[in-house]
Amino acid sequence: FDNAEGYAAGAAEQVMGDVIADLRLPRDGFCVSSKVMFGAAQDPRPTQKGLSRKHVTDACHAALVRLRVDYLDLYFCHRPDPDTPVAETVWAMDALIRQGKVLYWGTSEWSAPQIREAHKIARTHHLHAPTMEQPQYNLL
């Protein structure tokens, strides 16, 4: 199930969490994803959007609560953040994986050079690199 903090200001994740709870689906029987970047509401505070360690961490915790799960199978950086160094985002995503809150992280509509930079940082520091990309278009 694909979600994002910004879909209906977080309400989409809340509805998905309610459905998952109502159906009592076994956790090993589904995969759930979320995306971070735009924030869950129209909030002017700079800490409530973007790909800073602060927002990535807070947004993940909020998604876990809304979705009523202990971990996200997939967690995407919804767009590149020109205000946050890629290294900060890579370190933040790696921390969430090491904490068991995220299994895999990836990007959405990042350029090839941005993805290469993320992989180089991860490789240099022995961190988890992004493992998927959600492009706007594909060959299919």
Rank of each mutant, 00 (worst) to 15 (best):
A59F: 07
R66D: 04
L23Q: 12
N138G: 11
V15P: 00
A122M: 13
R53H: 13
L74F: 15
G6F: 14
M93H: 03
P44H: 05
S34R: 07
V86P: 08
K49A: 10
K120M: 15
A59T: 02
V102C: 06
P44M: 02
D43A: 00
K35E: 03
F76A: 15
A129H: 14
D73M: 06
S34L: 08
E88D: 14
G106E: 04
H125V: 00
G6Y: 13
F76N: 07
V15R: 09
A9H: 15
N138D: 09
P26E: 12
A9M: 14
H126F: 07
A40W: 10
S111Q: 03
A92N: 06
D22R: 15
G10R: 02
W105T: 06
A8D: 13
L103W: 12
W105K: 09
L127S: 03
M93S: 01
D28T: 08
Q14P: 00
A8F: 10
E133P: 00
N138T: 11
E133M: 10
Q14S: 14
P46V: 04
A92K: 07
F38P: 01
W105P: 03
W91C: 07
V86M: 14
V36W: 01
T107N: 08
N138H: 14
W91N: 11
I97A: 05
H126C: 07
W91Y: 13
A59D: 02
K35W: 05
R79G: 00
P44W: 02
R123L: 12
S52H: 13
V90K: 08
P80R: 08
L140Y: 09
A4P: 08
Q14T: 15
T47K: 10
F30C: 00
Y71Q: 12
D58R: 09
T47Q: 15
K35R: 09
M37F: 15
Y137T: 08
R79M: 11
K35C: 01
K120F: 12
